Computed example of a mutant assay.
Amino acid sequence: MNGKAMFSIGCHLSVSKGFMAMGRDALAIDADTFQFFTRNPRGSKAKDIDPADIAAFLQFAADHHFAPLLAHAPYTLNPCSADPKTREFALATMQDDLARLELLPGNLYNFHPGSHVGQGEAAGIALITAQLNAVLTPQQTTTVLLETMAGKGSEVGRSFQELRRILDGVVLQDKMGICLDTCHVHDAGYDIVDDLDGVLTEFDAVIGLGRLRAIHLNDSLNPRGSRKDRHARIGHGHIGVEAIARIINHPRLRHLPFLLETPNELPGYAEEIALLRRLYRD
Rank of each mutant, 00 (worst) to 15 (best):
G177R: 06
L279H: 00
G225I: 11
I215C: 05
I248C: 04
R42V: 12
L108I: 03
G240Y: 02
R165N: 06
H112M: 08
A123R: 08
D53C: 09
E121H: 00
Q119A: 13
H184W: 08
A122V: 07
L260S: 04
Q139V: 15
Y75C: 14
L108Q: 03
L196P: 07
A188W: 02
N218C: 01
T201R: 14
S159P: 01
L101H: 07
P257D: 10
D282V: 08
R254I: 01
T182G: 09
I29F: 02
Q161L: 09
H236K: 14
L266C: 00
E272G: 07
D48N: 13
E242L: 05
H255W: 00
R252E: 07
Q95N: 02
Y269G: 00
H250W: 08
Y269N: 06
L200N: 04
E102L: 01
V171F: 12
V117I: 11
A270C: 04
S8K: 14
G3E: 11
K4I: 01
H231I: 07
L172A: 12
P113K: 10
D282Y: 01
R281G: 02
N264M: 06
A270Y: 01
L127V: 00
S226C: 08
A126D: 12
L104T: 12
S16E: 09
L196A: 10
D197I: 09
D187F: 04
A122G: 00
A99S: 09
R230P: 03
G106H: 06
L108E: 04
D187R: 07
K85H: 14
A99W: 00
E88I: 08
G177H: 07
T142V: 12
H238L: 10
L167T: 02
D32F: 03
V193A: 03
E155I: 06
I178M: 04
E202I: 00
H186Q: 09
L108P: 03
G23C: 03
R278N: 11
E147H: 09
A61S: 15
L196M: 09
N110I: 07
A245V: 02
A55Y: 00
K47G: 13
F36R: 08
F7M: 09
D174M: 04
Y109E: 04
R227P: 02
A232K: 01
I234Y: 00
G240K: 03
G268V: 05
G210A: 13
A214I: 07
P105H: 11
S154G: 06
L212A: 05
M94S: 05
F19V: 08
Q119E: 12
G225R: 11
E265A: 13
A21F: 04
M149I: 09
A243R: 03
